[in-house]
């Protein structure tokens, strides 16, 4: 049987790797790394799971604030063309 050369992206592989990473980062952070290995410059960074919180909320805030900005600055695709015809 000839194999179909068109394949979908490796969805399952991605999710497995992702959840292993997620679990490791969550568990290792407070249990071992923070007290023994890590070296930071600001006290804030020593909070357990600081970078997890920073990543998650940073990302969500970015999207939500930008969407809020979008209410004022998003226009139709041909905004400048239409303006010049007027």
């Amino acid at each position: 049987m000839k194999m179909n050369p068109l394949r979908h992206y490796p969805k399952k592989f991605f999710w497995i790797v992702y959840f292993i990473g997620l679990g490791l980062s969550l568990v290792l952070d407070p249990l071992w790394l923070h007290s023994h290995v890590l070296h930071y410059h600001f006290p804030l960074q020593y909070l357990p799971e600081f970078f997890a919180i920073f990543g998650l909320f940073g990302c969500m805030l970015l999207i939500l604030i930008a969407k809020g900005m979008g209410l004022f600055i998003v226009r139709g695709e041909d905004y400048y063309e239409r303006e010049s015809r007027r």
Binding site: G21, S25, D29, F50, L56, C59, M60
Partner: peptide, 24 residues
């Protein structure tokens, strides 16, 4: 270790934020 760990943790959680808000 500090840098590699913190940046990977940050990205892993960024992905969660993206996955929930991907519709936006």
């Amino acid at each position: 270790t500090t840098r590699v760990f913190s940046i990977m943790q940050m990205f892993i959680f960024t992905f969660i934020g993206f996955w929930f808000l991907r519709g936006l």
